[in-house]
């Protein structure tokens, strides 16, 4: 059931990247898209009735039967870092494009064609 949330975030992000004309809106759409994918990755690791994946000496039996999967959480940490750096670079690029082209509209930033 919770997969619906993540997939709807992905669809909203894709809509923002493909159909919006302002380049800053495209970067925001990209950020939403990446976050939706990260949330989907965490939801994949969920086990119903799960406890956090921290194993101490006293709850080893509970850990084996009902802890959520810790591997997607490690993957998501890496992915969040990558998305932050891409978004930071994209915003700096938007600033440079504004200084150079004097506009933020993608229809006017299309000199290379054919």
């Amino acid at each position: 059931m919770m997969h619906i949330f993540a997939i709807s975030l992905i669809i909203i992000g894709l809509y923002g990247v493909i159909f919006k004309d302002n380049i800053i809106k495209k970067v925001i759409g990209l950020s939403i898209l990446a976050n939706g994918t990260n949330i989907l990755l965490i939801i994949i690791g969920y086990r119903s009735g799960g406890i956090p994946p921290i194993a101490t000496l006293s709850n080893l039996a509970d850990f084996l039967t009902s802890a959520v999967d810790p591997l997607p959480q490690a993957l998501v940490l890496t992915s969040i870092v990558i998305d932050v750096s891409v978004t930071a670079f994209a915003l700096v690029l938007c600033y440079r494009i504004y200084k150079n082209f004097k506009t933020l509209d993608i229809k006017k930033i299309s000199n290379l064609k054919g």
């Binding site: 894709l14 990247v17 493909i18 159909f19 004309d21 495209k26 993608i106 229809k107 930033i109 299309s110 000199n111 290379l112 064609k113 054919g114």
Partner: peptide, 17 residues
């Protein structure tokens, strides 16, 4: 065929998707 690559990023993304 050359009209496919218009230079506009939205058209590229739409076609790719």
């Amino acid at each position: 065929l050359q009209k496919l690559s218009t230079g506009n990023l939205n058209d590229y993304l739409l076609m790719i998707f």
